[in-house]
Write a protein that binds this DNA or RNA. Sequence first.
DNA 1: ATGCGCTTCCAAATCGTTTTGGAAAAGGCG
DNA 2: CGCCTTTTCCAAAACGATTTGGAAGCGCAT
Lengths: 338, 338
Amino acid sequence: MANAVTIKDIARRVGKSVTTVSRALHGYSDVAPETRELVQRVAREMGYTPNVMAQRLQKQRAETLGLILPTFGPRFSDPFFSEFVAGVGNQAAERGYDLLLSTRAPGEEEMVAYRKAALGRRVDGFIIIRTRANDERIRFLQQIGFPFVAFGRTADADGFPYVDEDGVEGMRQIAHHLADLGHRRIGYLSPPLDLMFAQHRLEGLRRGLAERGLALDETYLRIGALTEQSGYALARELLALPSPPTALACGNDLMAIGAMRAAQEQGLKIGSDIAISGFDDIPLAQHTFPPLTTVHQPIYQIGKRVASMLINLVEGMPLAERQVLLKPEFVVRQSTLP
Amino acid sequence: MANAVTIKDIARRVGKSVTTVSRALHGYSDVAPETRELVQRVAREMGYTPNVMAQRLQKQRAETLGLILPTFGPRFSDPFFSEFVAGVGNQAAERGYDLLLSTRAPGEEEMVAYRKAALGRRVDGFIIIRTRANDERIRFLQQIGFPFVAFGRTADADGFPYVDEDGVEGMRQIAHHLADLGHRRIGYLSPPLDLMFAQHRLEGLRRGLAERGLALDETYLRIGALTEQSGYALARELLALPSPPTALACGNDLMAIGAMRAAQEQGLKIGSDIAISGFDDIPLAQHTFPPLTTVHQPIYQIGKRVASMLINLVEGMPLAERQVLLKPEFVVRQSTLP
DNA sequence: ATGCGCTTCCAAATCGTTTTGGAAAAGGCG
DNA sequence: CGCCTTTTCCAAAACGATTTGGAAGCGCAT
C-alpha cells in the first residue's frame, strides 16, 4: 500500500500553503482562478484523495448512520432486513453518508453497542427498527439527546420522529377479507407482543373481525417467533385441533410460509381447503404456491425515507413530516381464494 | 447532545498532563498505581468515551471492514446476503472492528465506491463477494495493494486469499443423485456465467453427468438471473417444450423456488412428476413444499471466517490458510424424491 | 558530594484536515 | 504620492487522541 498523498504534498508541489490548497479544492472565492486550476490539476495527477478520518475529526461529524439489526441466533435471514438495508444504504450513499451496520440480539450487549457507537461519536445518528412496546434503545437515545429515526412506534406515543405503516389498518383489511369469504373459524399466528407492530396487527385483526360481528377465538390465537419454523409449528398445533380453523392469518410472510407447508403436509389445498395470509409482502410472497395474500410494505422506500429523515435531522434541516404513517396496500393473491 | 468529555477534561480534573491520562487509561507501566486508579475512576465518573475519529486518525487505521453488496435493482432481497452479513458483522464486532456496508450494482459506480473507500482510508480492507470470472474489483485492489479477502475465486487462479465452497463437487453430487434416480432429461437453470460460481456449478453438472455416461442436453440449459422470477420464467420455458425435462437442477435456491411454482402451476407433483434441486440451502429451503434438495453452504460461518482472515491480514498476522476450499454438504430432501 | 538507576511524569510533535484572522500585493482614485 | 479596496495568500490554531524523548525527584552505593 503506497503511502497516501496528503494535502501537504500538493502544497509543496505547487509551492503554496496547505490553506490555499484546501480552499482551492473546495472552490473558495479567495483563491485565484489559475491557482485553483493548478491545484486541482496537480491533485488529480498525484491521485489525491482526502483522508476521511482527518476530515471527520475536524468537522466533528462521522458522516455515518448507524443501524443495528436485532437478530436472534446466527441462522438469521430475514429478507425484510436486506431490502430495508439496501434502501437505507443507497439513500445514505446518495447524500455522502456511510452506513455502519451491526447485528445484535436484543439485550445487554445490544445496549453496549448503542452506547459505544453513540458516545464514541462513531455515528451521527441511529436508525431504529423493530421497535419494542417499551424500547430501551429509544429511551437511551432520547436521554442523551442523540439523533435517531425509528421505523415503527412505541407504546407511549412519544414525540420522536418515525415512519411506520398502519398495521391496524392492514390487518383490519385482512380480517374483512377473510370474514367476507365466509370464514368463521379464523386462526392467528402472532409475533411476540413486545414488538409494537405485533400489537398493532393483533388489534387490527380484532377490530376488523368485530366490524363484521365476529370475535377472535382465543383458542385459535398462537404466539411465536417471526420465522417459517415457528409458523410451521404453530400451524400444526392449530390444524390438529378437533375443529381446526378454516383460515389462518399470520403476523408476517415468513410465518405464513411455514403455515403453508404445515397445511400442505396435511394434504390441504391452500386457497380452497384453507385460507392463509401473510403480512409484509416480501418478494418471495409472489412466488409461493399458491402466491400469498398479504399486505404490502414498501420497505425499500421506507428505508430510503427513514435515512433521508435522519440525515436531515443530523444536519439540522427541518423535517417536512416528523411522524409518517403510511396507508397499507392490501394484496389479494391465491392463497386465500377458493 | 451534551458536549463530550475529552481526555483533556480528565487531565485538568486530576491535575495531570494528557500524556499521563492517556497512558494511565491504557495501563502503561510508567504511571503510579494510585494515579492510574485515580484517572480511571475520574474517567468513569465523567463518563469519558474516547473519540474514535481521533484515535483512528492517530493510529492511521479505520478499524473498519468494507463490504459492498453487488445488487441489481431496488427489490433486492437475497437471504443469502443477510446471513453472510451477520457472520461478517459479528466477527468484526468481536475483534473490535466496524462494518461499513454499501450496496452497488456492478459497474462504474461500484468501482467509484471501492476507490473512494480504499483511497480515502475509510476502511482497512475489503470483503469481496460474488466474484466474477474477470473481476475488476479484485484487479483494482491488487493493483493498489489494498488488503482484501474474497468469498469465491476468479478465472485466473491468482494468489489472493479467499474462502470458497467447491461448487464443482456440490453440483457433481446433484448430477449423480438425479442420474441415479433414473432421470435422463435433465434441465439446468444457470446463473449468469460471468459469475465464477456459476461456471463451477455448470462444470460440476457436466462432469457429474459424464461420470454417469450422460451428457447435458443444451436445449435444456437456460441462463438467467439469481431470482425466483427468473427461475419461474425459465422453468416455464422448459416445461413447455415438446418433451420437457423430468428433472430440473437450479443454480441456486431462489431459482429453484421459482421453478417449483412453475411446475406446480402446471399441476405437476414435485418429487414424483418432476425433480427439482437448488443450491445454497438458505433457511427457506427447509420450508418449501416439498422441502428442497440442495447443497448446503455454511454461509454464516463463511462470513465469520472471511472477516477473521481479513482482520488478520490487516493486522499483519499470519494466515493459517490463505486459500480455503470447503467441501460441500449435499442435502437430500423431498423435492427430488418420488 | 557525586553518580547511577528507578519511578513517575510531561511538553511537544504527530496524524491530515478545515478555519480563523490577518497580511501583502495590486489596482483605482483624488 | 498617499489612501482605500480588492484580490490573493498564509501562519497558526483547532479537532482529540497517541507517542517520543526526555526531565525531575528520590534512594542508594561509592
